[in-house]
Amino acid sequence: MSTKPTATSEAYVAVQQSPEFQSLRRKFRGFVFPATAFFLAWYFLYVLLSIFAPGFMNKHVAGNVSVGLIFGFLQFVTTFAITFMYARWANREFDPAAEALGDHLDGSAK
């Protein structure tokens, strides 16, 4: 682990400056930033509801199940679903795109 510039780190910068890399980077941010914003908002909504709308959260749906309980359960489900989607997206779309770019830059960057 060294902090000195090396041939590799120059190669990193060279790759980074290519327009293909910039579009790859946009692809990554285009997925990750909105996803983060969404799950944080969804999560904070649950807390807001449980503080300001206890009546709504208490509403019975069936038997011993209330709206709040379903909401709470859904939170776990969505967290899992988002992680799953992210992993699938990264494996199917982002990594292949990154690899294609790697092949394309082969010789110039390596």
Partner: peptide
Amino acid sequence: PHTRATMARLHTPESLL
């Protein structure tokens, strides 16, 4: 001084290099 190189390294997918 090497911020650019470090940042490039952090954000370049492993498969590229």
